[in-house]
Design a protein around this nucleic acid. Structure first.
Lengths: 219, 219
DNA sequence: GCTTAAATCAAACGGCTGTTTTAAACGGTC
DNA sequence: GACCGTTTAAAACAGCCGTTTGATTTAAGC
C-alpha cells in the first residue's frame, strides 16, 4: 500500500472524528478502525496522537491562511491610495475558510474542526496555533487598524474577539444553521454565509463606542 | 462529614477542572483528588460522570436563566406600551452570566464552563441543555422579534447565532481578555464587558440586510 | 443506647488508552 | 534473486478509566 494512502486515510478519519467528538473523546483505535489501517501506523507516520491533531489541523489551515493573506494583498492593491475597506478585510478573513469547506468532499468536518480549534484549551494545540496564525494575526491586525483608524486599541481587541467568536461558532455549526434556516450549505451557500457574517461583524466594529466605565487600568 | 461539604467539594472541583480541560480530558480521579474526597462518592451523590457534568452546569446556569427571564420581564414592564429596546434584551441575556462570575469566588471557571457548553458536541449534554434553555429560548426569541420587527426570520436566526458565538467566546476567555486589554475583570469590569458586547451585537443585529443571493430555498 | 438510613471507604471489576517492540511484508534498485 | 530502506502488522507494555461491591463509619430519630 502506498504511503500516501495510509497517511491520508488516517488524516481523513481523524479529521472527521475529531470534528465530531473532540480530541480527547476519540481514541486512536476509533481512528484506525474508521480508516481501516493498523494502530502502529499512527505512530509510524505521525509520532503521537497530539502530533496527528496538529497535522490534521495544519493540512487544512495552512492553505486557508495563505489564501487569506493573498486576498488581503489583493484588497490592498485594489484600494491603492485609498483606505482599506473593512468589508474587504473581513471577507479576506472569512471567505477562504468557508470556501475551502464548500470545495471539500469531507463536508462540514473541516469547518467544524477549525471552529473548535478556536475554543480548545488543549495547551499543546494552542502553542502550535500561535505559530500557524502568526502572519495572519500580524497582517490582519494592521489591516483592521487601517480600515478603522479611529478605533481605540482596547475596543479593537474586544471587538476582534467578538468577531472571532461569531466566526468560530458559525464554523462549528454551519451544517446545522444551513438546514435550520433552509439555506443552501453547498458551493453557493457559503457566499451567503460569509456575506451575512461580514455584515454583522462590520456593523459591530463600527458601532459607536460609549464612554468607558470608571476605574479602567491604563494599557 | 456533612453531605453538603462532600457534594459541594466535588461540584467545585469538577467545575474548575471541566472548565480548564473539558469533560473528556478530566477523569473522576482527577476530580476526587482535587476535592479530597473518595472516588465512590461521585457515584453515590451524582450517579455517573455524565450526571455530574449536568449537575455542575445546571447549578450555575439555572439561577442565571432565572435572572435573565426576570430582567427581561422588567424590561418589558419598563417599556410599557412602547417597543422593547434591543439593548435591554441583549443586556438581559448577557449581564446575568457575567455578573454571576463576578460574584463568585470560583473566578472564571464558571464563565469558561458556560461558554464551553455552547460549543460542546457531547450529545447527552446538548439534550440536557435543551431542557435547561427552553424557556429562555422561547422568551428571548419573542423579545428579539419585538425589538426588531422588520428583521426577516432567516436573518434573525443567523444573527442570533453570530451573537451566541460572540458571547460564548467571550465567556470562555473573559480572564485572558481582561488581562490582555488591561481592563478590570472584577466586580466592575463585567459591566464594561457586557456593555461592549451589547454595543457590538446590537449594531450587528441592526446592520442593513443586503439582497439575498440567488438560489435560496424557500423556508 | 439502639436501630436505621445515609454516607464514606478501599478494593476490585472489566475495559480502554497511547505507546513501544519486533518481525514480516513490501517496493525499489542493482 | 539479493539487498536495503520503508511500511505494515500483531502483540505487548504500563497505565488509566468509569463503575460496582461489600464493609465500615457516621448521623439522625426514637
Amino acid at each position: 500500500m502506498a504511503q500516501s494512502d495510509t497517511k491520508t486515510k488516517i488524516l481523513d478519519a481523524a479529521e472527521r472524528l475529531f470534528a465530531q467528538k473532540g480530541f480527547d473523546a476519540v481514541s486512536l483505535r476509533n481512528i484506525v478502525e474508521a480508516a481501516k489501517v493498523n494502530l502502529a501506523a499512527v505512530h509510524y507516520h505521525f509520532g503521537s496522537k497530539q502530533a496527528l491533531l496538529h497535522a490534521v489541523v495544519s493540512r487544512r489551515l495552512r492553505p486557508v491562511n495563505e489564501e487569506r493573506l493573498s486576498m488581503l494583498a489583493e484588497a490592498r492593491a485594489k484600494a491603492g491610495k485609498r483606505k482599506l475597506k473593512l468589508e474587504a478585510v473581513l471577507e479576506s478573513l472569512f471567505a477562504p475558510v468557508f470556501r475551502a469547506q464548500a470545495n471539500h468532499k469531507s463536508g462540514d468536518s473541516f469547518t467544524r474542526l477549525i471552529g473548535r480549534v478556536v475554543f480548545d484549551r488543549n495547551a499543546e494545540l494552542q502553542k502550535f496555533m500561535v505559530g500557524e496564525l502568526a502572519q495572519v494575526i500580524i497582517q490582519f491586525s494592521r489591516a483592521f487598524d487601517e480600515a478603522l483608524p479611529g478605533l481605540d486599541k482596547t475596543e479593537m481587541d474586544w471587538r476582534s474577539h467578538f468577531m472571532a467568536g461569531a466566526m468560530a461558532h458559525t464554523l462549528c455549526n454551519a451544517d446545522l444553521l444551513a438546514s435550520f434556516t433552509g439555506t443552501d450549505a453547498g458551493a453557493e451557500g457559503y457566499e451567503a454565509t460569509v456575506q451575512r457574517l461580514v455584515e454583522f461583524t462590520a456593523a459591530g466594529f463600527r458601532a459607536k463606542v460609549s464612554t468607558p466605565p470608571k476605574k479602567q487600568k491604563s494599557s
